[in-house]
Amino acid sequence: MAKYILKRIAGIFIVLFVVMTAAFFMMRLMPGGILDGVEENLSADMRDLIYAKYNMDKPIWEQYLLFLKGIVTEWDWGVSLKLYVNVSVWDILAERIPITLYLGFLSLLISVPIGIAFGTLAALKKNGIVDHAVSFLVVLFISIPSFVMATGLQYFVAYKWGWFPLIYDDSLPRITTTFLPVLALSFSPIATITRYLRAELSESLNSDYMLLARTKGLTRVQATMRHALRNSLVPVVNVIVPAFISIMGGSLVVESIFGIPGLGGITVRSINVADYSVTLASLIYYTLISLAAILLVDISYGLIDPRIRMGGSKDA
């Protein structure tokens, strides 16, 4: 197991390195640059000076080596070039990551139990009116993107009814001021988990081991809880990672809508103004957290499912 985890971690570093390299070159090869919009006001000397300061007078591959050297020798991820000129990228990220993680985890924390509850309900009442209602909502929530939800919630709940602050407000308790964005981010993962659990559970409910459980004399509730539900929760772990990653993706835009000072908002802005170093660092952060989430789930999957833990075949 330890060997497996080490191997996976090494894999994560390789992927990160590839992503970082590719992004570094792609961004710099794209048209536009850090002086877009101000170029006309600068003298040629000034421009050269600025380029020289950020190593941009050198060939790209040399810039890349210098960047790597900075990270390896001094853990120096560079400085912001446009948004917060000369502020260390590392500091910017360190300040913004906590609130983004807070949004993501809170949303996941809400989505998992609600999704499980709805999925169970729909499976138990399969083809009944409850099931149809749940399935209708699932389709709705999966197809409406989180930024549309966010805009709708902001307009109605915050602006029209005034129940929650319109945008992020530091002076309010965090839970109140992030309530709407978290809600907006949760619809889609709730729907995903509901749909998945409904399918898994209705299959388990019709399984032979469920019949065996009933022939032992277990009550319907006992058999459902101990056998069908427990077994169908195992594969649900599988959808939690994609759900989390899609929450992260959604928060890119949702944070901007609600003016939340998180990583999502600044990532989008840094792309718009070609603040290379900020974009690159947040990209690496997003890659890292997704890969780590996948690893975490793979490990926990092994812990829950004995067939994987002990190397048995899946179909047994």
Binding site: S207, D208, Y209, L211, L212, A213, R214, T215, K216, G217, L218, T219, R220, H227, R230, N231, V234, I304, D305, P306, R307, A316
Partner: peptide, 28 residues
């Protein structure tokens, strides 16, 4: 009623299933 079967199944009348490969809960 379903409830009244709880005292019969397993205790008085037992069933051995057709397919032993799928009758046991695979993760218990």
């Amino acid at each position: 009623k379903e409830k009244e079967f709880y005292d019969i199944r397993g205790k008085h009348i037992s069933l051995v299933f057709q397919d032993p490969l799928s009758a046991l809960n695979p993760i218990q």
